[in-house]
Amino acid sequence: MESRILRPTLAIYSGIFLLFLYGPMIVLAILSFQSADGGPQFPIREWSTYWYQHLLGLAETSRVSQLPVGDSLIRSIILAFMTTVVSTILGVMSAEAFRTKFKGSGPAFYLIILGMMVPGVLVGLGMALLSNTLGISRAWFGTSFVLHVVYTYPFAFLVLLAIFNRFDRTVEEASMSLGVSPAQTFRRVTFPIIFPGVLSAMLFSFTLSYDEFSRTLFTAGRELTLPLAIYGTFSVEIYPNLFAFGVLTTLFSFTLLVIYGLLMKRFTSKASRFKGQEEG
């Protein structure tokens, strides 16, 4: 049987693939514990947390300037939060609209999906040109923000569209037959049931926006977001403080992921769907 050879081969291959995915991050994490006089490469001269202290501004003055992460981190979080709220609301509204068949739904679908397809550098350029022409000053909370929504709204929309595809419409009809208005039905029945989807849409929007920089590059103006601050260090020599930063921001993302997982678990266990019928 071929699968006797094929299966282990594929399993080993998949293991190597995971190594390929994770290898660079693992190396980066190891190197983040380089000593103060060490460079961004092997060998590790001495294990230390020097670069973490350096990143947080706790290290004595050094030859390497501190990464400008403080303010930009706060900006990025606020921006991601704003983007999450707006794109999730737009996503819910649009996905709800697509439950009704209407003429022109095809083009409308593709117009929304285009937002995740158009390269960031293109819309970024377009937005920069537009704001120059109209005399609007570029800022992360204005020109960058609207572009972030252009990017994340389609993701939120798709997630919710998938949720609504599996949604049992009769529970809404049941609510209305009890005399509850459509608006209240949405609030009391539809929304709680689709909430896991809303949560996923929010997670998507937040992480995409938090990490987004090609759309921000031309539109953020003077004040940098976090990815822009990192991008700024690309052109100069890199130091292990960047690696330490990489480790910390990854941990931050995982924290988000864990919070999401816990919320999800709470909601799915509460709202577990009907499971077959037993005798009563």
Partner: peptide, 9 residues
């Protein structure tokens, strides 16, 4: 309803 359509939450 035939499927009862209870509010699962």
């Amino acid at each position: 309803f035939q499927n009862f359509a209870l509010f699962p939450h």
